[in-house]
Design a protein around this nucleic acid. Sequence first.
DNA 1: CGAATACTAGCATACGAATGCATAAACGTC
DNA 2: GACGTTTATGCATTCGTATGCTAGTATTCG
Lengths: 392, 392
Amino acid sequence: MHSYASIRNTAYECINLPDGSKADFAVFGRSLRLGGAGTDTNGSCSMATRSQPPIKRTVTMQDVGERAGVSQSTVSRVLSGSSPGIPISEETRQRVLDAVKELGYYPNLHAGSLRGQKTRMISMMIADIGNPFYHPMVRAVQDIAHGHRYDVIVTNTDHMRENEMLFCESIIRRPVDGVIMVPYHLGNEDIEMVIERSGAAVAVLGQHITHPLADVAFGDDDIATREAVTWLIEEKGHRRIGFIGVTNRFSAGERRRLAFLESITRAQLAFPGEYHQVGDWSPESGERAMRRLLSLPEPPTAVFVCNDLMAIGAIEAAVQAGVRVPEDVAIIGFDDIPIASWTRPRLSTIAQFPAAMGEAMARAIFERIDGEYEGPARRFEFPCKFIEREST
Amino acid sequence: MHSYASIRNTAYECINLPDGSKADFAVFGRSLRLGGAGTDTNGSCSMATRSQPPIKRTVTMQDVGERAGVSQSTVSRVLSGSSPGIPISEETRQRVLDAVKELGYYPNLHAGSLRGQKTRMISMMIADIGNPFYHPMVRAVQDIAHGHRYDVIVTNTDHMRENEMLFCESIIRRPVDGVIMVPYHLGNEDIEMVIERSGAAVAVLGQHITHPLADVAFGDDDIATREAVTWLIEEKGHRRIGFIGVTNRFSAGERRRLAFLESITRAQLAFPGEYHQVGDWSPESGERAMRRLLSLPEPPTAVFVCNDLMAIGAIEAAVQAGVRVPEDVAIIGFDDIPIASWTRPRLSTIAQFPAAMGEAMARAIFERIDGEYEGPARRFEFPCKFIEREST
DNA sequence: CGAATACTAGCATACGAATGCATAAACGTC
DNA sequence: GACGTTTATGCATTCGTATGCTAGTATTCG
């Protein structure tokens, strides 16, 4: 009934070109309907002795072989480019290729995964898809993976340790070729376990990871933080600066807090405890934190916020409280997510480059997967960049 | 050396509880280091005849069986809750469970996938992770999937037909239990093929899909569009209304265009061709489209934009052109992504409920996967809701 | 006391593809 | 014409798990 026109016409008829190049694609099923052809030479289902109706939905190499009058192993060799030592006659190769087309054969990736070949999957762990910071990163990883004909499993942790550990377990249960993660709690031991048990190539966003085999990407957010805070003090003349951060001894938030404190101390400014507020990266938490700061008897005249989402919440809180930004209070964010340039006032922030980070991590693991690199862990550092807009 | 403390302490020791409930988790490896225990009863690698060093990274049921002094099949039955007819003595069960713990055994999901059991994966196709509209949807799907202990493969199509077809092919090559997609080009035939070849449960966001087995979710965006446009005309008194849409005969954009035209026509307003501008869903394209509208000799006093991202671009274009929103031109968007309430002016828009849609689709496929529902396709309609803010 | 009936647990096989090894045919050489 | 060599293909096994079938041991019944 259906013609499957759109799929059928795809331009992927490139299983194993005569010139020796190979591809893992087999398309152009002349008739993708299965089990109904009728006039095949020996097209009846080979499982006919079963009590179940002979409906077989998957086309296997066995089927292709029967159709072409060769064995399954020959089909495998034709399709996989036959290891150089083992020649295949041109006639056989052609018969197999024809049968592949006629039956609409596709290789079953699950089989290869089980045999310990490539799984053609990578797994990616991020904290929250809802945070735009991660989008370009996921994007970059996906694009590179798809270029390698890999699929990507994406998982959120919501910054929770338990979810990060579940992620590791899921990799042991379903080993993949590569893993990219943004851990907030996991340490080198956990990564060691993932590598040892799954054999995957691992890349991590996180300065604190020093596993000898895990490639690492990170931003120099401490430097950028010091520069920005110093700028607030020296250029803008702020003396009372608040800080909205997060709780986690590993995270970038903590690194930024230390860098912030360093700048404050160096300038010999006071930093009362109430000036340090804690959120959870979300706009709502930023809004709450800002409200607390604004309700202080002597509120800060500038606030350094650990990410843009919380900074946006902070702006919102200020607007609602009738406090002008930046006249009454300056706000500075971190990440430079797209929204940052659409708020009013537009948000001053420190740009990171998640797309570049994602790309670096993806390239790193594919170099390992493809055997192009086998050495020790590499560390990719990405400079951050302060962007002055209207909120400071 | 390493203790793997964090993983080891996870609270997932719940393989197959005595009460009959079962879980597919096996954790608490007392010693997750492999091949080094030394004093195992028969812990030496069973593959010792190989020339390769006896480093075996994966712990299999065979290993567990040897440790517990039972066969692999018995281990399987203990762990999988043993089909009711086949009882297992409590002592054996306990020995197996102990061995599982001691060896840190995890089931290998690839094996089950090959055997044609559940793959414990679902695949999700969206147009663009960069568009916040999809986040709550992906989120909802992931959360429900993880609740079922499923992983989610996420793929972008960038609205391109070719990528949508590649997605279908990838599902044939690596069958999954469930598929959720947001197609812009695929039709019923393509979905038929996916279902037939992969056997997956399929749910689709898209009113135009009427496949007898594919559950469908969609919003009543045409109704919402008519209401909003009529409101612009009747309540706000606009007579010259522009439209920024997209090109695609299937997409929601086209449906909204038709609904828009209907309202215009019913009000007997003129709609010159230049008032219809086309973008590609992105803010930049919205900005360009708006610039074209504003440069007309008689620009519209209100513009209906097919999604929020383009509407934000439109606001940007207006601001840059010195045109006041909403005094000089009213702008109305579609989707109600979070950013919409952070722009200035805050964007009036038509809310959709992507989280609810994602949840509906995920529940639908899991009902089919779990065999709780086997009937014909269901259609889940979600009302849209106009939200008046400051841009109109 | 022998036989029927629980209980248990192991053996063998299948899933789909890759690959080492064996084999068959064709050809050339002495 | 026997043998070595090349060329082309098939057989059998492997990956880790689930499961139908078989076999053995206790327990109970006639």
